[in-house]
Amino acid sequence: MKLASRHVLDLETMPAEDMKNILDTAESMKEILGRSIKKVPTLRGKSLCTLFYEPSTRTRASFELAAKYMSADSISIATATSSIKKGETLLDTARTIEAMGVDMIIMRHPVSGSSHFLSRHVKGAVINAGDGMHAHPTQGLLDMFTMRQHLGRLEGLKVTIVGDALHSRVARSNMWGLIKMGAQVCMAAPSTLLPLDLGDLDVKVYDRLEPALEGADVVNVLRLQLERQKRGLFPSAREYSQFYGVNQERLKLASPDVLVMHPGPMNRGVEISTEVADAPMSTIDEQVTNGVAVRMALLYLLLGGADE
């Protein structure tokens, strides 16, 4: 079953049935990750390029491993090692990559909307690996995959996103994905880090942590970008931790079987306490494994079929 679009740009534009298809396919892919020979020949002869205008460890490694496990060839271009520094435009860079015969570009970029822009000007597929504050669809999918694996469903879950939702592409992709899949989404942060207005998006917004945690099935903790402190959006990491840090005491408010998630990398002792991060209810390492499975599923669904 083909996806509605040949690109994966955000979860806002992705139909719910496509998300379900991706999550189902990822279940099958996860089995491959448990084998001693973690490789299938499916995408032999396909090639992709990770084009990263922002530093990243896990997302990029995850995509590259997913490609290798599926037998696709991958190359990578990062800001520090290419002509990006010389001021080449995004479109020129992308055209150069395509001219080398690459079937897919996986891009991370600091400007919101860049992958939408890129997708309008290339022949191949584009996967958004994070664009500015806008979207990080593969993170949203792997978070949903992890929730579904543990709790068996997404519909009706109460998912609380804690932290800098205003500047977070992870938060936006979680919101769109979860709402489309029938979950209830809450958000808690200092009011200076909360979105002003979410329009029609049905998200309950709290400026205190405690009421948002009440009865939560999942608590997804966002990384606190410490540079926001320099811009004066909160006074100190210490105060943030004191009022908005997720710790064991506060988690007593949540459902007894609560899952605690974090997209990484963590600031231990700031947005999440070490006790919580390392507790059995934490799925932080598993999210990384699931990230590979979800990305394998996407590669299969986008590169596997014949062109129309």
């Binding site: 002003l196 979410l198 029609d200």
Partner: peptide, 13 residues
């Protein structure tokens, strides 16, 4: 413009 659209798009308003 700053508002719900800028928020959803992740653009500074």
């Amino acid at each position: 413009h700053e508002g719900s659209v800028s928020t959803l798009l992740g653009l500074r308003g």
